[in-house]
Amino acid sequence: MEFIETVDLKRTFGDIVAVEDLNLRIREGEVFAFLGPNGAGKTTTVRMLTTLIHPTSGKAYIGGNEVGREPDSMNIRAMTGFLPEAPGLYERLSAARNLDFYGRLYGVPESRRKARIEELLKWIGLWKRRDSPVATFSKGMRQKIAIVRAMVHDPQILFLDEPTAGLDPSAAKTVRDFLVDLGSMGKTIFLNTHNLSEAERVSTRIGVVSTQLLAQGTPKELAARYLKPASVFRLREATEDVVQAVDALDFVEEVHVEDGELHVSLEDPQKGNPAIAKAVIAAGGEIEFIVEKEMGLEEVYLRLLEDAA
């Protein structure tokens, strides 16, 4: 069942088109990474989906509620948790008071609220500092509090906008581990990020966006769809004769030398590799080892953005 659905969603600011023709389908329990460079329209999309701003055209539905229509928008706000790019905590108030405030606004009953705050603060290891003003916390700690703030009412869906932006590597790792935990809890998570490894590690599916949705699928699906298979031949010396010999083979689509290794793109590596090996040896090359080239998200991402540009 689609939990988040957008149909030709568009948002402009004056003459600037921030998001266009956005068609997304995200199932319940999915961790969906919305990947794109700065200015790609990720934050605008999340703001539309969390009912903070209206779409210029198109429609969006969250759990069957239409974005921008009352009382649907109020239902959407009640069923979603939102972490904006900046934590936006009340620095003079304690961690517990911050969570209590949001718990009240989300209508969590007092008995449940207290237990929930304790549970969440213990989960992120800040229960002992529950009464300390947020101003005394590190950036990573604040980000964790901001994340559990979005969860205080146990929402069905979480929108997280760049949760690790601006954090040092250690704090970013803590938050990323935290997101993996969240994903394993079965929450539907919409994760805005421009961090490829974060998207790859945390999400079950990825959407690449640059104003328009360029592609969506699992990292492997995207790699299979957008990248050709390749074999890497590690040679003692990659001479010009060897390159020409391999390039002369009919089934080889592309060949180039990278860090002394021969990268060969071809339709079926299993079938073609023995013939390539023969050609290399015949041209005087000495093979040290052959491996299948790993197709990472980075290649897919850069390729998609390159094509879009």
């Binding site: 969390t50 934590p87 979005a150």
Partner: peptide, 14 residues
């Protein structure tokens, strides 16, 4: 300045 308005406006509050 605190950037706290965005999460506040995302709550079911009019």
């Amino acid at each position: 300045l605190n950037k706290s308005l965005e999460p506040l406006l995302a709550t079911p509050t009019t």
